[in-house]
Amino acid sequence: MKTDSKIDKALALDLLGKMMKARKFEEKVQYYFSLGMIHGTTHLGIGEEACAAGTCSALEPLDDMFATHRGHPAAVCKGIDINKMMAEIFARETGVCKGKGGSMHIADKSVGVLGANGILGPSLPLACGSALAHKKLKDGKVSLAFFGDGASNEGAFHEAMNLASVWGLPVLFVCTNNTYGMSTHISKVMKVTDIEKRAIPYGMKSVTVDGNDVMEVYNTVKEMRKYAYENNEPVLIVENTYRTSGHSKSDGNLYRTKDEINYWKERCPIKRFKERLLSEGIATQEEIDNVDKETTEIIDNAVKFALDSPYPKLEDIYDDVYAD
């Protein structure tokens, strides 16, 4: 799909800001994790920010989004409160999930973030049901599920694809295709690696984009959202990208070369977009620097907020097991 050549400046700076916010957020998480100040594990999406920023910005603010284990960038770009998200990762009571969920379960229904997920596959069936609800309620919303290339080999993917198409659900299935599931390259686990083709047997519309081109992602998802909503039909969107960070804290990168990682670092979506904005005269260096400064401040403040927040209390562990 071709990118619109005329870029709106405000939109461009917004997308750049979101990508930078996601990147800086994760770099901070990585740093505090290495100091042992963040507990558990984290899956960083460094290098994949254009997918999150382009996709989430193309949604209406209250559309519902189901994320994956690598869900920080999507939550950031969907407009979650950064302070509360950082506090969650630091396991604080002020966190979006009150310190009970952590990195892998970031959620905030008020901005349509219906959860990062520790299990591969469920985002798609869940988004089907969410889209069914929106269709029945006629509330003008659509639902979106992120999932990875690896997760598209789960039964849940295929069942959801069928259900969404046969029931005519306004849902977007967005595959963040970084060509690896942990260490396993897509070519080792799929005979046909063109994931877009998986829509054909389900009679579903599908499209593939350069997931490191934030404008292409944005324009495509915007158009597909409109299509899904107006026609009550699902769409499969494949966003090709690469994670330059490891799979998780336990990744020794034994399955790929430094050259490969560096090749993709050169194609960093943030770097690419900045260069484009400058070369096409859409933004000045000063304006870009300002976005950089603002996002740095936002993230620094979020860390401060998190570190100043108390831990949850043991007495409260039974809160939220059941709803009232």
Binding site: G101, L314, I317, Y318
Partner: peptide
């Protein structure tokens, strides 16, 4: 274990 899903916060 208490009858709750395993919470993230290490204290809990």
């Amino acid at each position: 274990s208490e009858d709750v899903p395993v919470p993230f916060c290490p204290i809990l």
